[in-house]
Simulated scan of single mutants.
Amino acid sequence: LAGGGLDVLVSNAGIGLSGPLELHDEAAMEAEFQTNLLGGLRMARAVLPGMRARKAGLILPVSSQLGRIVMPNMGGYCSGKWGLEAAFEAMAYELAPLGVEVTIVQPGGYPTRIWETGAKAVEAMIARNEPERVRAYAQHIAITRASMTAPRRSDPMDVAHAIAALIALPAGDRPLRRPVHPDTSVTTAVNKALSDVQDRVLSRGPYAAWRAAVSG
């Protein structure tokens, strides 16, 4: 931003709250959905009037591999990220005729503070639950705690470099999704399979041109 309009929005706020879904009380789900889904949509709504007026702009919501894949003990997190993926794919089609692009960034597990803050949120959530529920999910809780502290050796700068590369691409050449991780094979396969489904759903009718304008 240098005296003109906002060119790019990166929505990267996230909370990594895990554990079995029965233990996710309203406070836990509120924190996850407000941060991982609704926060990104609020930010997009704030910047879109200016981008639409200029018929240019790029929105980069940061999702996750778990926005396309489901893991036990990660149901709350997956739900928010799946919602993010759906919302911003729909937005990509809606913005296609208005000159604004969307690329959904899909990182894998990186060693950032999301694990530290998530572990604190998990312990607070467990403490709010009735003892019977906690006892019933003892094995799940042990797996959850181990996963939050497991070593992750990938470089978080991978994500920053991927975002910079997306911004540098010419308008019209950016993909709808960009997986980021040393191993993106599973995410890429899921993206390809669901992209084929979207082609079948939208290749005819009033949205065909919008779908054609969105790559992937």
Rank of each mutant, 00 (worst) to 15 (best):
L6C: 14
L6K: 05
L9N: 03
S11L: 06
N12W: 06
A13F: 14
I15T: 13
I15C: 03
L17C: 12
S18D: 03
L23D: 09
D25P: 03
E26S: 08
E26N: 03
E26D: 11
A27K: 12
A27L: 07
M29V: 11
M29D: 06
M29T: 03
A31W: 04
A31P: 02
E32L: 15
F33I: 13
T35H: 11
T35E: 08
L37R: 01
G40H: 12
L41D: 07
L41G: 02
R42H: 15
R45C: 10
A46S: 09
L48A: 07
P49W: 07
R52C: 05
A53V: 10
A53E: 15
K55V: 01
L58C: 01
I59K: 00
S64Y: 08
V70A: 15
M71S: 12
N73L: 10
N73G: 01
Y77K: 00
G80N: 08
K81R: 07
W82L: 10
E85C: 04
A86G: 14
A87M: 13
A90G: 13
M91L: 15
E94G: 01
L95R: 04
P97A: 02
L98T: 02
T103V: 11
Q106M: 15
P107S: 05
G109C: 09
E116C: 04
G118Q: 06
A127V: 00
N129T: 11
N129P: 09
N129I: 03
E132G: 00
V134W: 10
R135L: 13
H140Q: 09
I141Q: 02
I141W: 14
A142D: 12
I143V: 13
A146Q: 12
A146S: 05
M148L: 13
T149R: 11
R153C: 07
M157R: 15
V159M: 07
V159N: 09
I163R: 00
A164Y: 09
A165I: 00
A168G: 03
D173M: 02
R177E: 07
P179Y: 04
D183Q: 04
A189M: 10
D196S: 14
Q198H: 13
S203L: 03
G205H: 06
A208D: 11
A212D: 08
A212G: 05
V214P: 00
S215T: 01
S215K: 13
S215M: 02
G216S: 14
G216W: 04
